[in-house]
Nucleic acid binder design. Sequence first.
DNA 1: CCAAAAGTGTTGACAATACACCCATGA
DNA 2: TCATGGGTGTATTGTCAACACTTTTGG
Lengths: 242, 242
Amino acid sequence: MTAGYDPYAFEPFAVTVDLAVFTVRAGALHVLLIRRGQEPYAGAWALPGGFVLPRESAETAARRELAEETGLPEELVAALHLEQLRTYSEPDRDPRMRVVSVAFTALVPDLPEPAPEGGGDAAHARWLAVHDVSELAFDHAVILADARERIGAKLEYTCLATGFCPPEFTLGELQSVYETVWNTTLDRPNFRRKVLATPGFVEAVPGAARLTGGRGKPAALYRPGPATTLHPPLLRPEGSTR
Amino acid sequence: MTAGYDPYAFEPFAVTVDLAVFTVRAGALHVLLIRRGQEPYAGAWALPGGFVLPRESAETAARRELAEETGLPEELVAALHLEQLRTYSEPDRDPRMRVVSVAFTALVPDLPEPAPEGGGDAAHARWLAVHDVSELAFDHAVILADARERIGAKLEYTCLATGFCPPEFTLGELQSVYETVWNTTLDRPNFRRKVLATPGFVEAVPGAARLTGGRGKPAALYRPGPATTLHPPLLRPEGSTR
DNA sequence: CCAAAAGTGTTGACAATACACCCATGA
DNA sequence: TCATGGGTGTATTGTCAACACTTTTGG
């Protein structure tokens, strides 16, 4: 650091956070968006986010904004695994002023009630299939693309796919998470073996189990295990993503 | 984004960049540090870095600061592959004011002249073995640890190990990069096969070659290839990284 | 001729794939 | 009893680690 340290020596920067929150619903990857109510980009879809307050870290701000702007349940937001994606700092990314934005990604299970319909700001929040997302405010389309890329890659060598699942899930549900994000199909017996062979990825819920979308044999239930990384990785087949 | 947009509505944030620049020298991983000349932490070692100017992106600022503060050659700095590591935004990470810092990592070959000894700021820049680094200013020890971790992981599935090598290098040199960063030993025949089996990782320099630290059979020379990712990855053995 | 480093070959253990097959349930 | 999804077994194929061996240089 070279120059002096008068806080007002420089044109002030605003620091914001943006969130790419994903879920898997109806066999498609969805992202949580809000509709902007004011200029610029009024009426356009945007990633949820907002200013980092003077006494907050970026991560704290991200949780606060997520709770405020979307109707996601408090306890879910508090427990959520937030991952820092990247910081976007192009000088003209916001037409009003200099804004540097720290982007985060998060994965949530498909929520019982379809859209977050809390009150206030949450009214403009919606899940949209990433397929159908066309234009976004600011450089959010770039952030979204980067986030998708990252999520897809992370499924290969981390356990975070369970983040898309409810607290207890079947291996079929877990598999469909991979298939949806990667837009591919996997061999069920092999998928099953790989998951179970990785210690700490999932652990069986002891009292037997049942569940399924209707017909078919009831499936055993699993919980996320203590592991965070996948050794060896679960590699996606050649052609995937989109 | 919820609130109004008066640039002065909030206590201003300063945005800085910090750089963890690594090289491999004499069988040890080294990091480029500068000695601080002013409070706070005067006399302490710190990562190079500085303020992002009003019309700069973080990456542009990183290159500028790197050139200014260290004596690294201009053309090297311009061509360098900079990778964004993470943004550090804890409210009290700088005792003077609110500073949000975007951290980058970069890899450079062992430079002919041992330390950057340009002029001015560069006078305080030195390469230190990461082993010997004890205390650093601010939260730079955390940044350094994160950067090491990231570099080690990235060697597994990307081609960036060649960034530690001169423009033309032998497979032995490349192997010792892996061995140094991972603090492990690798089987030479197998390493060789894996590298050559990955299309685009390295390409042979056609006109024969020779080079070596003295005795031994002359080795063929290679250049970095066009590939950026390693499929399949080159996994490090169980116990590594210190 | 010996040490040191580059480069080649071969083998056996293990992992990943593909696919056949059985089980339990709802309609 | 049939369709649907859960779950098991197995053979083939390929990949990877281990290690023996040859080649080319400097002293």
